[in-house]
């Protein structure tokens, strides 16, 4: 029976990837991509990792889908032209390359799966070292304590993506256009329920992150989803200038993480050593704020955010 479930989800992934990427209109492709992301989250749930299920759903399908849709809408609002389809020769070549790569990756993957050893030495080391840190969730342990340089640089990648997007935007523009706000009465009611719930769920994910699946990334993405909802419902508006508070929020994750790491180095501990679970929560909160603020600003396509609509 579990094979039937896996087979259904796996074929769903392949069919949805085909529908998202080949043929049909672009908007339908984006819709199918979002459905692909949610099905991918189901696959992670089946593979026994709820963390990834939440991250794929919140970041992979939710925020990425929102970014794709707003980009598609802006391209139409700008009246960008539709490129000519490719020549049939290129289609055949592409088909050949696609098939070849699929077969190669399948053979490589099957060989890799077949030749699985007794399990990664790093994985065993993780299982042994985890209890000492007082954390229950191995993934948060890896992200914040054992391999925290990855996580620190990754938050820096998000910051770089935002600064680069602002550099692309150029400073002559107030903000990119946004679709008209949906403030029908019912939407107001939904926003009144969903926005606070998003904050509540984000804080829960953060707190639960050390013992149960959850953590800063999922929490940050849920905050971003709440921010996107507020923008679509016309409660939050792009602003030409980035307030100091928002700027601090953008760099909070990187600065707090580096700060704790360097202070520990100054106290004679190894670089980036994390003293205790209180430090884990401090760092995760800062990262959640940074990730949420950055993703909402990337969606808004503007320097800052403001509650009062511009006249």
């Amino acid at each position: 029976m579990s094979l039937a479930i896996d087979l259904l989800i796996a074929t769903g992934l392949v069919v949805l990837a085909w529908q998202a990427l080949v043929g049909g209109s672009l908007f339908r492709g984006i819709v199918m991509f979002i459905v692909f992301g949610l099905t991918m989250a189901l696959a992670w749930a089946r593979l026994g990792s709820p963390d990834l299920a939440m991250a794929e759903a919140a970041i992979g399908a939710g925020v990425t889908g929102a970014l794709l849709m707003i980009a598609y809408w802006r391209l139409r609002a700008l009246g960008a032209n539709r490129p000519a389809p490719r020549s049939p020769l290129r289609a055949r070549v592409a088909l050949g390359v696609g098939l070849l790569s699929a077969v190669l990756v399948a053979m490589i993957g099957l060989a890799a799966v077949g030749a699985i050893g007794p399990g990664g030495e790093a994985g065993q080391a993780l299982a042994e070292a985890l209890p000492a840190t007082g954390l229950g969730n191995p993934i948060t342990g890896v992200l914040v304590i054992f391999r925290n340089l990855d996580t620190l640089l990754e938050v820096a990648v998000l910051l770089a993506a935002y600064v680069a997007s602002r550099a692309v935007m150029g400073d002559d523009k107030a903000a990119l256009p946004l679709p008209p706000a949906q403030d029908a009465p019912l939407v107001g009611a939904l926003v009144a329920v969903l926005a606070p719930l998003a904050v509540l769920v984000a804080i829960y994910l953060l707190k639960a992150g050390s013992q149960l699946p959850g953590g800063a990334f999922q929490a940050g993405a849920v905050l971003a989803a709440g921010g996107v909802l507020l923008m679509l419902a016309g409660r939050l508006h792009p602003a030409p200038l980035c307030g100091v508070g928002l700027r601090i929020a953008l760099v909070a994750g990187t600065v707090v993480f580096s700060g704790v790491g360097l202070i520990m180095l100054a106290l004679g501990q190894p670089l980036l050593a994390i003293p205790g679970t209180w430090a884990v929560y401090l760092i995760e909160t800062a990262m959640m704020i940074s990730i949420g603020a950055t993703l909402v600003l990337l969606f808004a396509g503007s320097a800052g955010l403001t509650g009062t609509p511009r006249r």
């Binding site: 391999r147 340089l149 990855d150 640089l153 990754e154 820096a156 990648v157 770089a160 993506a161 600064v163 680069a164 997007s165 550099a167 692309v168 150029g170």
Partner: peptide, 26 residues
Amino acid sequence: SADLFNLFVTLELVTLAAIGLLVIDG
């Protein structure tokens, strides 16, 4: 870095920062 995945993360950061600089004049 001497870690294969950390090299992937730093390589992405290098690429994003470099392309951001490339388009700064627009």
